[in-house]
Simulated scan of single mutants.
Amino acid sequence: REMLALAGGAVEITALSRAQLDLTDTDAIARAIGEAGDLDLVLNAAAYTAVDRAEAEPDLAYAVNARAPAAMARACQARALPLVHISTDMVFSGTKSGPYVESDAPAPLHVYGASKLVGEMAVLEACDRALVARVSWLFSAHGQNFLQMMLKLAQTQPVLKVVDDQRARPTASADVAAFIFSQAQRLARAPAGAPEWGLLHLVNGGEASRYEMAQAIFDLAWPGRAPPVMQPVPTSTFPTPARRALNCVLDTGRLKSVFGLELRPWREALEDTLEQLAPAEVSL
């Protein structure tokens, strides 16, 4: 949705819906790319993202997160097309004391992370012009995400218990889309072996805990109004089928060295995202 919002002028984006393409059908994926008209670049922004449900649906998670991207990569390689594939911080265990760089060894804690890791590896193996962009804690004015959840819970819960021992770099989906859009022509021209290809950590500037992010949400969404009562709690307060990593902070040194840029601070991006929400959604 964020990519489509940026489209216009000389750039045309074809976005296939679920009804148009079943991502569990690798033959259909191959046809969709192989038989399409003039293409410059393929972007896979789709994923099975139900982290806890994936523990009970591993085959579906692997179908969408691993086998589908592999099919895309093979089809792109056959047409000499570049592929941008969105991945996740959840390929890491969270035990490192500092930010994760692209070369750190992955060690996912759950089916979702493992399926995304297999997808990363398959894409990079099958396509020699592939960029795998890892993102973290995506928020948007659309869909289901932490921002939306906090605003809704504040309307029904007298006290919001928010995890304070998980840390990452919150990232706006719109900023990820803007980066891809801004680099699309460069990527369409870059040959195999160019530094643009490979793993890339693509996240906004700054880091936060979930609790700190929740504080920022209400500081910005409810100016001049008392925030809801919030209580910082450890991850263990909310037992889940999929174990959560505590440190998901991604280093962006490669983003700066290869592409010569950094994404803006996450709080600034959060402010812009909140402005996209209808007033009723912010202050129900």
Rank of each mutant, 00 (worst) to 15 (best):
Val249Phe: 01
His201Leu: 04
Gly34Asn: 11
Arg31Lys: 14
Ala168Thr: 14
Gly37Asp: 07
Ala54Tyr: 08
Ala126Glu: 15
Lys152Met: 11
Glu2Phe: 04
Pro234Phe: 00
Ile180Met: 08
Ala56Gly: 08
Pro108Trp: 03
Ala68Gly: 03
Leu160Glu: 12
Ser87Ile: 10
Leu23Val: 04
Leu199His: 11
Asp251Trp: 00
Asp251Glu: 02
Glu271Asn: 14
Ala126Met: 10
Ala28Asp: 06
Ala32Ser: 11
Met150Gln: 12
Cys127Phe: 02
Pro195Gln: 03
Leu263Val: 01
Arg167Thr: 09
Gln20Arg: 08
Arg243Lys: 12
Asp175Tyr: 01
Phe146Leu: 13
Phe181Lys: 02
Pro241Ser: 04
Glu125Gly: 08
Phe218Arg: 03
Asp38Phe: 05
Phe146Met: 13
Ala45Trp: 09
Ala278His: 13
Tyr62Lys: 01
Pro69Glu: 02
Leu270Met: 09
Asp27Arg: 15
Met3Trp: 15
Glu125Asn: 07
Ala168Val: 03
Ala80Arg: 15
Leu6Asn: 05
Gly98Glu: 13
Leu261Thr: 15
Val111Tyr: 09
Val118Met: 07
Thr156Ser: 13
Glu275Thr: 15
Leu138Tyr: 07
Lys152Ile: 06
Gly193Leu: 00
Arg79Gln: 12
Leu109Met: 11
Glu125His: 10
Trp137Ser: 05
Glu57Met: 12
Gly8His: 07
Val163Gly: 06
Met149Thr: 12
Val258Met: 03
Ala47Thr: 06
Arg53Lys: 14
Ala168Asp: 07
Lys161Phe: 07
Met90Thr: 13
Lys96Tyr: 00
His110Ile: 07
Met213Cys: 07
Leu41Pro: 13
Arg79Phe: 11
Ala122Ser: 07
Ala242Asn: 14
Gly8Leu: 01
Ser173Asp: 14
Ala70Val: 06
Val42Pro: 09
Ser209Lys: 01
Leu131Gly: 01
Glu35Pro: 05
Lys116Met: 06
Ala280Lys: 14
Thr240His: 09
Asn247Ile: 00
Tyr100Cys: 10
Gly193Pro: 03
Arg264Trp: 04
Ala192Glu: 07
Glu275Tyr: 02
Ala133Lys: 01
Arg244Ser: 14
Leu109Val: 06
Ser283Lys: 12
Lys152Trp: 07
Gly205Glu: 14
Ser115Tyr: 05
Gly143Asp: 14
Leu202Ile: 05
Leu83Thr: 10
His85Thr: 09
Arg134His: 00
Lys116Leu: 02
Leu16Phe: 04
Leu21Ile: 03
Leu41Arg: 09
Arg67Gln: 06
Ala5Cys: 12
Gln183Tyr: 06
Asp38Gln: 11
Asp104Leu: 05
Ala174Thr: 01
Leu81Lys: 04
Arg264Cys: 10
Glu12Pro: 05
Tyr211Leu: 00
